[in-house]
Nucleic acid binder design. Structure first.
Lengths: 340, 340
DNA sequence: CTGAAAGCGCTTACAG
DNA sequence: CTGAAAGCGCTTACAG
């Protein structure tokens, strides 16, 4: 086993000082061509690589980005990480990933842990519990200590920082408008409970679209789901009692579940019922029928978030102007809204 | 903005030495009860947290695990990361994730990068290109430098290290045997090219099952797919020309694609064609019909891999005995193999 | 052109 | 009981 070689060892072998070795490797003009070459050759031979940890301590920057998300086994979040990772890598940053599991406490613990020197900044999406509690002290604290934070998707107005989101309300509005233009009269909504920020916004978009087209908003047409595991009965009830001709679902899972339940009840999609989901993920593409959906480009969101964070990290002077970037969305039409 | 407080600052404020502060915070018995309390109170007030980087440098351990996988936008890998992250966290480790994008070069660069002090060890699954090239020098090197590596899923015999896999061959064997017991006569296979280790093993399992049951292995019944984007034509040809009554697909995507193509051709699943896939992911659960599949518990795999790595990291003496752990699999029966 | 010194933030063996 | 010193691996302003 050959341990990693350090400057000290090279210095000893070559009988020069550590400073000389360091400068040679960094091509300092202070050093004579001769020793420089000698040192570099030796370093190459022994495959010398500067120790990241030592560099981090010295430079007071780790070149790593902390990502804190609710979960990773979720196509959209995986997609965002992918986007972040690629941009981070291009810029010489690594990413360290922590999952909050939708728990406030875990979010706080993870943030604290990473904030103790492990990362230069954060990219995060709030856990459900955090959104419910509206307690953001951990985030404020980190920002106060000078570590920039970029929030994406599940954000809050109560924290001042950079954000990257989609226009959830507008996207929902457009989906519902699509139904209306198609001639649908009884448009249902399958959404989350209101404390989930994006769910609430999409619900608002649905309501506004109906209102703007002089359609009544019927509370019985709206199903708010707390827990995905037992959403079936509520959706079933909606389908049975209200007999909607269109359903807008705020995520893929709600959309596919709706379709499956409709099938079971003999309601045909898209003949009897049109369905639009949210998030252009794997389910929408491979479900039968394929599901029309609002695309939400996670790769792009992640990439943009990483770019914003890195720019802020590498900014000369502090800039108190925070930006919120909007990622454009669009409706991907598939079989579940086909006109036959 | 209040910067993070350091031992030095506390020492200055309290007019004691840095050593005293450090020892007080670590409850050293050397320190008088009095100063200990004073220091601790002060540290708490200022929310002192030791700097991870400084600790890493001092202790020569970072308490972070490097994960290198081909991609993250892939349910199975996301699942494994989740498993790793949870076990890592429970043990006070963080995870830093790098994606190879199935590229050998990126795998090498990422490994090099992380090996320069950023992590204590690695958990990885080989990129396709690495498996094709059979060049594992980067992994050998890391191991040589004393950093343990645990491989999962896409592993190689050419590197000695801990591994966690499923018995791909047996699982495939059992799937095919299930078809045979059901009375299927013309069992097709949709698999990957042979250099993908798990694809090859599953192909072997298929062949062995047929042979053991005295059934002919017909090369025309086997489709080997290089690139998922244009697999349709090959599968279509198989369905059309061979008219199989069962298809075993080595992953979810192949399975769902097969079903969709069959549908399009008027071949009904499961009436005319039974299908079993591999990896119990999101597609299998939500596709219509739902797809029978070999479960491959990624959470468990990840958890086990993390456990193995951490045990090795925290082992007193070096142990040259490497283990390969098998994660049990089983066939999840769903609609695509229903007997009507 | 080379090297000793200080310092990043911490721990710990050793003196006093 | 307290503190100075050395050291983890590096960089860089400063002397010589």
């Amino acid at each position: 086993m050959k341990r990693k070689v350090t400057l000290k060892q090279i210095a000893r072998e070559l009988d020069v000082s550590i400073s000389t070795v360091s400068k040679s490797l960094r091509n300092s003009p202070e050093i004579s061509e001769d020793t420089r070459q000698k040192v570099q050759a030796f370093a190459k031979l022994y495959n010398y690589r500067p120790n990241n940890i030592a560099l981090s301590l010295k430079n007071k920057r780790t070149k790593t980005i902390g990502i804190i998300i609710p979960e990773i086994v979720h196509h959209f979040f995986a997609t965002v990480i992918s986007g972040i990772e690629h941009v981070a890598n291009e810029n010489g940053y690594n990413v360290i990933v922590c999952l909050s599991d939708e728990s406030f406490d875990k979010e706080v613990i993870n943030m604290d842990m990473l904030a103790s020197g492990s990362t230069d900044g954060f990219i995060m999406s709030l856990s459900k519990e955090t959104q419910q509690k509206k307690d953001f002290h951990h985030i404020e604290e980190v920002i106060n200590q000078g570590m920039p934070v970029v929030m994406f998707d599940r954000v809050t107005n109560e924290v001042l920082c950079d954000k990257v989101i989609i226009d959830d309300q507008l996207a929902a509005y457009e989906a519902v408008e699509f139904f209306i233009n198609k001639g649908c009269k009884k448009i249902g909504l399958v959404t989350t409970v209101d404390y989930v920020s994006v769910g609430k916004l999409r619900t608002d978009g649905y309501i506004n679209a109906l209102k703007d087209h002089d359609m009544k908003v019927n509370e019985d047409m709206i199903v708010k789901i707390e827990d995905i595991d037992n959403c079936a009965s509520k959706i079933e009830k909606l389908l049975e009692e209200q007999k909607p001709d269109a359903i807008f679902a705020v995520n893929e899972l709600f959309a596919v579940t709706t379709i499956k339940l409709a099938n079971k009840m003999g309601v045909k999609v898209p003949e009897d019922l049109s369905v639009i989901g949210f998030t252009d993920g794997i389910i929408s593409k491979f479900s039968t029928p394929t599901i029309s959906t609002i695309s939400q480009n996670g790769i792009k969101m992640g990439g943009r978030a990483a770019k914003m964070l890195i720019e802020r990290l590498e900014m000369e002077e502090e800039d108190e102007l925070y930006k919120t970037e909007l990622i454009e969305t669009h409706l991907v039409e598939r079989e579940s809204t086909a006109t036959l």
